[in-house]
């Protein structure tokens, strides 16, 4: 009976205050969506790091006859020079984990494959990308050692560290993450203030009922519980909607579009959305219960 009564009170309350309830749903949805995007961006950065740091390589490009680098002196690398570089790299183990040699044809093939959807692919001919050694390091942060050892060495055109390029990219992702967290924090603040206002308004519009409840000796719990549940329900609905939006973003944005366009494995997917969902739901629940508790304590005293 009691449960049924309380449920009916909650239902009546939500219906009577429908526009406010909807606004709580929407504001919670937007704030949780932004927060979720921030969290997903963070996970994306981690996924990228995991993906790329495994593959990160220092590439030592050999000289070609067309090389612009002064060290090459317009002469292509000789077999002896190549062997000397290879031998020197072998001496640098265990810092050097793996060395792959890539011929001009192989470099061309890889490029064609990587950029098969891009108009760039058509403009590149065999020989445009020099033959090179791709060096994988056991500790990617120590790329300087390789750079200093091989830059300017006979037959070496250029030494390129991918990590440097990637770090710029990760910095970019980090800024996006911070930005979305700041936006999310502002929206969460909005949501909290709106919840508090909604409760105050609901408490005011139902002051007759709550007044009678107090008079006949209803417990604080009975008086406050419906207000709390209304807020909780609205905000959880908002969190559910936000999860739906994040799922759509991950599924249609990342899975279907980006993964096919660029690379597989390097992007987050729907499973990442499910991983952050429990945190968002718990966060929303704590936030709405906390907000309503404080607001009710202030505005609905016995």
């Amino acid at each position: 009976m009691r449960l049924q009564f309380i449920l009916s009170e909650i239902w009546i309350g939500l219906r009577r205050n429908l526009s406010m309830a909807i606004s709580v749903v929407l504001v919670t949805m937007v704030s949780m969506y932004l927060l979720g995007l921030g969290l997903l961006a963070q996970r994306q950065a981690d996924t990228f790091k995991g993906y790329w740091y495994d593959r990160v390589q220092v590439t030592i490009f050999m000289c070609t006859e067309d090389s612009g680098e002064p060290a090459c002196d317009k002469k292509a690398v000789t077999e002896e020079q190549k062997n000397a570089i290879k031998a020197q790299l072998d001496q640098m183990r265990p810092l050097v984990k793996n060395v792959y040699y890539e011929s001009e044809q192989q470099a061309y093939d890889r490029f064609q494959k990587q950029f098969r959807n891009s108009p760039l692919a058509g403009n590149v001919r065999v020989g445009d990308i020099p033959q090179n050694f791709r060096v994988q390091l056991s500790d990617p942060t120590k790329y300087e050692v390789i750079v200093s050892s091989f830059e300017g060495a006979p037959g070496v055109g250029a030494v390129q560290d991918q990590k440097k390029v990637l770090d710029k990219f990760f910095k970019g992702i980090n800024y996006i993450t911070i930005f979305s967290f700041v936006l999310a924090a502002l929206m969460v603040l909005c949501a909290v203030l709106l919840m508090a206002t909604t409760i105050r308004q609901a408490a005011f519009s139902r002051r007759r009922e709550t007044g009678i409840m107090k008079l006949v000796g209803a417990s604080n719990f009975t008086i406050r519980f419906p207000f709390m549940m209304e807020t909780l329900l609205s905000s959880l609905l908002g969190a559910a909607a936000a999860t739906g939006l994040l799922w759509a973003t991950a599924n249609y944005g990342f899975n279907r579009y980006l993964n096919q366009l660029i690379l597989d494995q390097a992007f987050i997917g729907v499973s990442d959305v499910w991983a952050i969902t429990p945190w968002m739901v718990v966060g929303v629940a704590v936030l709405s219960i906390g907000t309503s508790w404080v607001t009710l304590w202030r505005y609905l005293r016995v």
Binding site: M1, R2, Q4, F5, I212, M213, V216, G217, A218, T222, I223
Partner: peptide, 11 residues
């Protein structure tokens, strides 16, 4: 009935 419902009395 409201006075009894809020006190949790049985139906």
């Amino acid at each position: 009935a409201f006075a009894l419902q809020v006190l949790g009395r049985s139906g």
